[in-house]
Every structure is written in structure tokens, then in C-alpha cells.
């Protein structure tokens, strides 16, 4: 599949202008940052809490914002215009994801900075955060493509926010009910496991399994998104 940076950039620029004037959605990005500052003042010790914030950023910025952006393009029938243009699936999905990706990275950075999270190995954590964000952006895109309006999208995305933000609480429940063991393979739990190992001095080689599982989620989510998108091109 061909990707045209000119087209991706055109969509990014358009999205940036549009998003900055869409206060209802854009104000969401401040929630994790404010919480980060709040936790920073209280003094956060545990990795779980740091990643509660980071996973919440994924859910609220990467998934929720992306879902709303896509749903709005659907609702206003502008997605149709993009689909009828020479832009390829990769151009449209790439262009539509880039703004969300940049915002997610900026918000994760500020939130972690304010909460005073200092990873033992910044390279591994950065890579894991970038990889994880791809999963949430794809998830948001999928849900956005499913919903008919922004309102519907914001309802559909709620369970996702809850499940993925509250990763550490899920682990507690899982300990009680072993049948829920599969839940520990979710990318948010894997990210916490990875970060815990890194804090205990693990190197790249020690967290390959966690990386592989997250990567698996990313690949599955991207493939599904492309399939749904292609289906949406024809009524």
C-alpha cells in the first residue's frame, strides 16, 4: 500500500485546526495532566499508580479522542469525501491517527513528568509506550467507524476507558477469580508488568515476551481497523 506524506500531512493540518476549535473534545487531554500534577504533589511511589495515569491517557486521549474524531468525520459525511479522493486507506488512517499519536505522546510525557515518574530504563519504557499507543489509537478508530455519531461514539468508548484505565484493579480481581487469568494478557496489564520488571532492573531481553504480546495486540487491532475501514467505503 502506498502512503503519500503530502496527503497525510494535509489531513494532519486539517485535524489540528479543527481539533483546536473543538473544545468539547480537546479539553479531555487536560484530565490526565491535572491528575498527574495532583499525584506528583502527593508523591507517588508505585509503578501501578504511574501506569494508572499512563493507561488513563491511552484510554482518554488515544482511544476516546480518536474515536470522537473518526465518528465526527462519519457523522458529518466528511469521511466520504476523503474516501472518494485519491487518498489511500493508509493515507487516511495514517493522517487521521497522527494528531492523536502526537497528543498522546505529549500528554504521557507531561503526565509522567508531573507525577515524577523516572523509569529505570527510559528507552525501553518509551518504546513500550509508543507501541501501546498504536493499539489504543487503532481501537479508537474501530469504535469510531462503528458509531454513527459523536454522541454514540462517546457512549461506546466508555467501557474501554474503564477497562483499560483501571488495569491495576483488574489484577486484584483476577487474583480472586483465576478464571479471569486471560485478562492479564491485555496490553495495559502487560505494560504494567513490563514496567515493573524494568524497575527491578530488567533489560530488553527480559521483557521480550511482554513486547511480543503488546505487538500482537497492535497487529490484530490494525488489521481489524483496515478491514472495517474498507467495508465502510462501500455502503
Amino acid at each position: 500500500m502506498m502512503i503519500s506524506w503530502k496527503r497525510v500531512n494535509a489531513i494532519l493540518q486539517k485535524d489540528f485546526k479543527d481539533f483546536s476549535r473543538n473544545l468539547a473534545v480537546s479539553s479531555v487531554i487536560f484530565v490526565p495532566i491535572i491528575l498527574g500534577a495532583f499525584y506528583g504533589r502527593m508523591g507517588v511511589e508505585s509503578i501501578e499508580t504511574h501506569f494508572l495515569l499512563i493507561n488513563m491517557t491511552f484510554a482518554m486521549v488515544a482511544a476516546f479522542v480518536q474515536c470522537c474524531l473518526i465518528a465526527e468525520e462519519k457523522e458529518k459525511n466528511t469521511l466520504r469525501g476523503l474516501m472518494l479522493s485519491p487518498a489511500s486507506t493508509a493515507d487516511i488512517l495514517g493522517g487521521k491517527s497522527l494528531l492523536t499519536f502526537i497528543m498522546t505522546m505529549v500528554v504521557v510525557f507531561f503526565t509522567a513528568f508531573l507525577a515524577e515518574y523516572k523509569p529505570a530504563n527510559i528507552a525501553i519504557i518509551t518504546l513500550a509506550v509508543i507501541l501501546s499507543s498504536f493499539f489504543y489509537i487503532a481501537l479508537g478508530t474501530m469504535l469510531g467507524l462503528y458509531s454513527k455519531s459523536v454522541l454514540e461514539a462517546s457512549v461506546i468508548v466508555m467501557p474501554v476507558i474503564i477497562v483499560f484505565s483501571l488495569g491495576s484493579f483488574i489484577t486484584l480481581v483476577v487474583e480472586k477469580y483465576p478464571i479471569l487469568q486471560v485478562v492479564t494478557y491485555l496490553p495495559n496489564i502487560q505494560l504494567i508488568d513490563l514496567a515493573t520488571k524494568v524497575e527491578a532492573g530488567a533489560g530488553f531481553g527480559d521483557v521480550l515476551v511482554e513486547f511480543a504480546i503488546i505487538l500482537g495486540w497492535v497487529i490484530a487491532a490494525v488489521i481489524l481497523t483496515v478491514i472495517i475501514f474498507r467495508k465502510r467505503m462501500v455502503d
Partner: peptide, 25 residues
């Protein structure tokens, strides 16, 4: 041109058309 417009309401006329210029080279 179809009946349901498909324009970006928060953007100016110019910005809407600029996007399409870039998409169509």
C-alpha cells in the same frame, strides 16, 4: 457533489478547499 455536504464546519472555506487541493495534488 452530493446533497449532504461533507464539509468541515469549524474550518474556513479556504481551509476546506486547501485540504482538497493537497489531496488531489
Amino acid at each position: 457533489l452530493t446533497d449532504n455536504s461533507g464539509l468541515y464546519g469549524r474550518l474556513s472555506i479556504y481551509d476546506n478547499l486547501k485540504l482538497y487541493c493537497d489531496l488531489y495534488d
